[in-house]
Design a protein around this nucleic acid. Structure first.
Lengths: 245, 245
DNA sequence: GCGGTCTGATTGTCCGGACATACACATTGA
DNA sequence: TCAATGTGTATGTCCGGACAATCAGACCGC
C-alpha cells in the first residue's frame, strides 16, 4: 500500500508545496518509516499526474529540512529517525508558551533614546540618531526569568506598551508585516552584578546566561538589537544548527 | 558595465554552481553593491548562454543564504548589506584557529565504556552497549578554555589520541567520510563545582558556560554526543540562526 | 489634486524531455 | 577466492517553453 497522496490542482497553493506538506505529514505520523524508500521520482510523478521537476522541488524542501536523504542510483529515503524539525529562530515568549508556562511581561522602559555607538553599529544607523529602547522583565509562575533590553530602528512599527506586555516582540514584528530572516547571536555567561541580581531575584555573583542578538529581515535590514540576561536555573537555549553544504 | 560573468561548460562543476559562486564572489568583493538589481533572469540567462532554470537555481542558493532577495515584478537585488554568511556548525577547534589562537588539546580520557541511559538515548543505542568516551581539555595561550566530554557510537572510525590532540573531532569525522548535517544544542550556565573549577583554573562557584550537543550525519544517525563546559571569560558562542520559511 | 485602473516588467509555477553520473548488484576473469 | 568489469536504476543536471501572479509606475477620470 504505497501511501495515499493527492494534489488539488484547483487550489492556489503550489503543487510542490502541497506534495511536500503531505510527505512531511506522512513522515511525522509514521506512515513513512525511517529508512524506507520513497519510490523513484519518475514513477511518483506519474502516479500523481505531476512532472518530475515539481516532484523534485517538493522532495528538495524536505531534504533541506533533513527529513529525507537522496542517494544517486539508490533512491530517496526517509532519514534514519532522530532529527526533529529544526527549531525556528527562537522567541523567548513562544518558547515559554510552548512549554505551557504562561509567560508574563513587565515593561520597565519604552522610550526613544539616541543610539550609542554599539547600538548604532548593530542597527546600522547613525550614532546619536533616535532609536526605540524597550526594557522588559519576563516572568513565569510569578518568578523573574529574564531581563530583556532591546533597541529598534525608528519608524518600523509602533511599540505599544500594552501589546508588549501581552505578547512577544517577534510576533509584533510579524504582525507588522516584517519577514524575519536570520539573527546573529552571541551567548555567554558571567556573574551577576548587584543591580542585575536584584532584578532577577538572584544573589550578586550568581551565574547568569547572557545573549546578544541582532535580527535581520529578508531585505538584510537590522530590525532589532537586544541584550538579554537569563537565570540559568530557569532557562537554557535549545536550538538546532544546520551545516551549510 | 554589467559585471563579467562566465561559465565553463567543459568543467565538471555544475553550471548553476559556477554561476552562484561567481555571483557570491561579486557580492563579497563589492562588485555588486547592496540594493542593486541583478538584471532579469531571462536576459541574464541569454547573456550567459544558459537556460532560465539554471540561472534560477544559482540565484536560489544565494537567496537561501540570505545574500539576495527576489521580488516579483521588481527583480532580484543584493541584500541591504549587514548579513554575513551564516556560521557553520561550529567546531571549537576551528573557531579558535580562525581567531589565531593556536589551540592545544590534552586528551584526558580515550576509552570504551558502557553507555549510560542518557548517552544511550542521545546516540540511539542500547543502554549498556559499548560507546567511545573521549574527555579533553582544550587550551589556548597555555590557559585552559574548555573541558569537553564526548561519546561516540562504536565502529564509526578509530579515535587516535594523537590525532585528537592535533585537530578537532569534527575534522576527524569529515576525514573519515562522515557528512555532518545538523546538531541539536542546549546552552546554559551554572556555577562551577570544585572539581570542574580546578580543571579550568577557576574558583569554585565561578560562572561556567555549558553546552550539550548531539550531532547527526546526513542519514539522521547520531554520530556524537557531548557535554562541554567553557570558561565564559574566554569563550562565548557566536552563530547565526536562520528562520525556516 | 487624488484615487482607481491599466499596462509592462519580472519572478513564480509547471511542464516534458534529454543526457550525465553514481551507486548496487551480478557477472566475468584471473 | 577475489578483483575487475559490466549493467540496471535512480538521482543530478540542463534545456526550452508556457502561463499565472504580483509589483511599480503611468495613465485616466473624478
Amino acid at each position: 500500500m504505497p501511501l495515499e497522496l493527492r494534489v488539488d490542482r484547483s487550489s492556489p497553493v503550489p503543487l510542490y508545496f502541497q506534495l511536500s506538506q503531505q510527505l512531511e505529514a506522512a513522515i511525522e505520523r509514521g506512515a513513512l518509516t525511517p529508512g524506507s524508500l520513497l519510490g523513484n521520482e519518475i514513477e511518483l510523478a506519474g502516479r500523481l499526474g505531476l512532472s518530475r521537476p515539481t516532484v523534485r522541488q517538493a522532495i528538495q524542501t524536505l531534504v533541506d529540512k533533513g527529513l529525507l536523504v537522496r542517494r544517486r542510483g539508490v533512491g530517496t529515503q526517509v532519514v534514519h529517525s532522530q532529527v526533529k524539525r529544526p527549531l525556528e529562530l527562537s522567541s523567548l515568549y513562544d518558547d515559554l508558551e510552548a512549554a505551557g508556562q504562561r509567560p508574563a511581561t513587565q515593561v520597565l522602559v519604552n522610550t526613544v533614546v539616541p543610539a550609542s555607538a554599539e547600538v548604532a553599529a548593530a542597527l546600522n544607523v547613525a550614532e546619536g540618531s533616535d532609536v526605540h529602547r524597550v526594557e522588559r522583565l519576563r516572568m513565569a509562575h510569578g518568578e523573574p526569568m529574564a531581563h530583556l533590553c532591546n533597541y529598534l530602528p525608528p519608524g518600523l512599527f509602533d511599540l505599544d506598551t500594552g501589546q508588549l506586555e501581552a505578547t512577544g516582540l517577534y510576533r509584533l514584528m510579524r504582525a507588522a508585516g516584517i519577514t524575519l530572516h536570520s539573527a546573529r547571536q552571541s551567548i555567554g555567561a558571567r556573574g551577576a552584578a548587584p543591580e542585575e541580581a536584584e532584578r532577577l531575584a538572584e544573589q550578586a555573583g550568581a551565574p547568569l546566561l547572557t545573549m546578544q542578538r541582532t535580527t535581520f529581515d529578508d531585505t538584510g535590514r537590522a530590525v532589532e538589537f537586544g541584550t538579554h540576561t537569563y537565570r540559568p536555573t530557569r532557562y537554557s537555549f535549545e536550538f538546532q544548527l544546520l551545516v551549510r553544504p
